[in-house]
Design a protein around this nucleic acid. Sequence first.
DNA 1: CACACGTTTCACGAATTTGTGAAGCAATGG
DNA 2: CCATTGCTTCACAAATTCGTGAAACGTGTG
Lengths: 170, 170
Amino acid sequence: MGQRPDTGEEDNSDVRRFVERFALALHDAGVPRMPARVFALLLSTDSGRLTASELATGLGVSAAAISGAVRYLVQAGLVIRDRDPGARSDHYRLPGDLWYEVYFQRTPLIEQWERAAAEGVDILGADTPAGQRMQETRAFFAFFRGEMSRVVERWREHREQLRQAGELPG
Amino acid sequence: MGQRPDTGEEDNSDVRRFVERFALALHDAGVPRMPARVFALLLSTDSGRLTASELATGLGVSAAAISGAVRYLVQAGLVIRDRDPGARSDHYRLPGDLWYEVYFQRTPLIEQWERAAAEGVDILGADTPAGQRMQETRAFFAFFRGEMSRVVERWREHREQLRQAGELPG
DNA sequence: CACACGTTTCACGAATTTGTGAAGCAATGG
DNA sequence: CCATTGCTTCACAAATTCGTGAAACGTGTG
């Protein structure tokens, strides 16, 4: 954890325990284990930006584990890979507008659910009780997808208010 | 699948494929495999209510697998266990207001995330960049929890509109 | 009351996920 | 140009999850 001053074993141990705990919560939400740990570690660093080597050291795992994890996170849009000109190392960093991006990246997943439900209506029969329940399920996902867009826009507004009220750093 | 007329192997096979597909989507969202399959099967039956034995037959698995799965779903509040007086079998059914209940049951999970983030602020230091990012994370979850309550209330209204417009069965 | 039924629990094998060490590959820098 | 660096890939072992069959348990019914 090159970005954190090492203020002692106990402090470091608290942070590491927190990282693992947060990663478990992400895992419960469906994120595979190593990507969850990488994301939680990035969240817990001052820079929000680490090399693969730093990630491996910070989590106490091999470079191979990091390679798989960051591939997942980059593909999911949860982490951005960049590199300074002339540098040897890729850096992995959090999106600038973090939670906006995280939830924005959920949209294709919800669309996928919506399509699955729509196909379910055909398969089950639009005039059957099961088909009608599935119709409602499709309508819910369509509705939810639209609402999520609005929620994350409102989050930005809300965050701005919190910043002006001094409750979040600006 | 006692509730579905068996209209032929191909039709049944489509439904079963759909169930497995939907279950995979639930699994991607963090639901363990067997509970996801049970939930998807209940969704796909006309009654939305099956015994353990019917669930086992419908999914082609053992009674033991169903026992574990329904324990998870009942504890998560996603399925309700009931029994007719004098019957030998428990039935497992979907909540009446399905998607309202599903998302309502997510609230404790969001609260858990919020608490984890609050603890992270302490651990990382409220005046560090990492701590401030975690402060924003906590604020996001608090905001999101409130918004989710509103979203599911709005869903009910929206669904009522769809019903009156004839786009959903009433 | 005895028996059958409908699970649930237990012990464990099968399947899948996770993460490793070593080799391979691409590119940086002297 | 070439040695070194910083990964990525590969083959596979370790860990975890998943699901089974059999036994145990609780209860409904004749």
